[in-house]
Simulated assay, not measured.
Amino acid sequence: MAALIVLVIFIVQAIAEKRILLNDPDLLQSQIHALERKVEDVVGKYTDLSVKYADLSTKYNDISIKNNDLSTKYTDLTTKYNDQSIKYFDLSAKYNTLLTKSNVGGLFIRWGRKDCPGNNTELVYSGFAGGSWYDHTGAAAEFVCLPRDPDLTTKFSSAYAYIYGSEYDTAEFGHADGDDLPCSVCRSTVQSSVLMIPGKSSCYDGWTMQYHGDLVAGAYSQKAATQYICLDEHPEDLTAGQDNHNGKLFYPVLASCGSLACPPYRNGKYLTCVVCTK
């Protein structure tokens, strides 16, 4: 019974203290200020988060727009790439066809040889170097490469010109005086431009060398006009062509200073030559 009484007294005192606390204005005021500070803090954080969210939303929208632009550009580039790929394969097919048919090759004559060089060339025919008599005043100037299987005729009977074989007229080319000169007509199977460069033994950048050798022409003291041709560095002669009958003759070409710039040329020096394709 005594314990119960003590318990009741404790409860009554606690209720009384609670009432006192609830009725304390300072306590209530401090609690209100504390709540206000918490609310302000929450509102501040909410505002910051709202600003950050808005900023992130803007950036997201910008990124979305850029992504859409990139997607569009990617689609356009993919389309262009596919178009270019189709054109590339089409051109490749045409190029391979041209290589197979080999219809675009440039022609050149290899003087002093019965064959063609490498470098994607094919032999059209091998024959005899020829031209006009070295001392005829009405002679044609150019050298020609005569085929071994001519088609001849007898239908003319009026005035005429002559054609002769061409001979080495000096042993300096490695063959006896009177040895006949061969030639070969060659065609590049991949390159269409042909250039003979006098005074050079190598080609310029971008050009392919077919052969090189010595620049030759008719002697200056002979009446017949000639042209400059490029005699291969390693010339051959024709079988059974050792008899000295003259005909179309040629000699190495010397530089003569004066109107010719010296240097780079030097008086009395012989000129080389090279045949190039591209």
Rank of each mutant, 00 (worst) to 15 (best):
T277W: 00
V216P: 01
D149R: 06
S202R: 05
S57P: 00
H33T: 12
S50K: 09
P252T: 08
F128V: 14
Q191K: 15
E17A: 13
G213P: 03
L123I: 13
L22T: 07
D149E: 09
S71Q: 07
H212M: 10
H175P: 05
R148Q: 13
T72I: 08
Y228M: 08
W207M: 15
S201P: 02
P252Q: 07
K269V: 14
G112M: 02
G178W: 03
L28M: 10
M209R: 13
N119C: 02
P182E: 02
I20T: 13
E122R: 12
K59Q: 11
Q210L: 09
E167A: 15
I15W: 10
V144N: 05
A171V: 13
M196V: 14
L195A: 12
G130V: 00
Y228Q: 09
L123H: 03
S50P: 00
I65V: 15
R19V: 12
D180K: 15
K18W: 07
D41A: 15
G247L: 00
H245D: 11
D55W: 09
Y95C: 02
A16I: 08
G178V: 00
N67H: 12
L231F: 08
H136M: 10
V124P: 02
N246I: 07
Y160M: 07
V274D: 04
K94H: 07
Y134R: 04
Y204T: 13
L254Q: 10
A54V: 07
T208P: 02
K59P: 01
I5V: 12
K114C: 05
L152N: 12
Y220R: 09
N82F: 05
T47F: 09
V274T: 12
W111E: 05
L231Q: 03
K101R: 14
G118Y: 01
D69A: 08
K223W: 11
E236V: 06
G138Y: 04
L91K: 11
A2M: 11
A219V: 05
K18G: 09
A129R: 04
Y204H: 08
Y53W: 10
C276H: 00
Q29V: 10
G106K: 02
T79H: 08
A14N: 11
P150K: 00
C230Q: 01
T75I: 04
P235W: 04
S201E: 07
N120L: 08
N68F: 09
